[in-house]
């Protein structure tokens, strides 16, 4: 499960809106091994497929600068974020939104960062309703949807097993790609 403050979600969504129709990307840093995102760092999308607007890549020099700063602060990336901005040619959800689901290329790169949540905001237009979902790779390398719990602040969030509604009640159906 990804427990995340509402203001951080707003920052990600605002970034996705600003950059639409290009994919926006960024990372949420938190204390090492806390699994708790504390601040959003928007990243420059350095992918050269700008005309297509359908890929993202962190600018490598900027990534290094953020890495150095994070190391100095005992922080690490807790969440990697990017937006999906286009309606898929073959709709995969009934919602009519571009589905917030990792692409084959997304999954390839997810495998490089075990334990990191990969958040996707699907946004059909700059003013459209955002669809936020999060994913992880399990130990077998399969994509699993990661329930997102948005909280006002972490002090009053309850994430114990007894407080968690059944996953089926919250998690939208993940399309079967097998």
């Amino acid at each position: 499960m990804l427990v995340i403050r509402a203001d951080l979600v707003e920052e990600m969504v605002a970034h996705a809106r600003r950059d639409h129709p290009r994919e926006a990307c960024g990372q949420l840093l938190g204390p090492e091994e806390s699994d708790r995102p504390e601040r959003y760092v928007p990243m420059t999308n350095a992918d050269d497929a700008e005309a297509r607007g359908s890929d993202y890549r962190f600018d490598s020099r900027e990534q290094f600068a953020v890495h150095k700063q994070a190391m100095a602060n005992d922080e690490e990336p807790v969440v990697v974020f990017h937006s999906h901005t286009r309606v898929p040619r073959r709709p995969l959800t009934d919602s009519g939104l571009p589905e917030a689901y990792p692409s084959v290329k997304d999954i390839e790169y997810m495998g490089l960062q075990p334990g990191v949540h990969f958040a996707i905001v699907a946004l059909t237009g700059p003013d459209a309703e955002p669809d936020l979902r999060s994913f992880l790779l399990d130990d077998a390398g399969e994509v699993v949807e990661d329930e997102v719990q948005v909280v006002e602040n972490y002090m009053f969030s309850h994430t114990g097993a007894a407080d968690v509604p059944p996953v089926a009640a919250l998690a939208p159906d993940v399309p079967d790609r097998s």
């Binding site: 990307c25 890929d55 490598s60 990534q63 890495h67 286009r86 960062q113």
Partner: peptide
């Protein structure tokens, strides 16, 4: 020498 995972994706 610092090695970092590249962060990328897309359709």
């Amino acid at each position: 020498v610092t090695i970092l995972p590249a962060v990328a994706g897309g359709r």
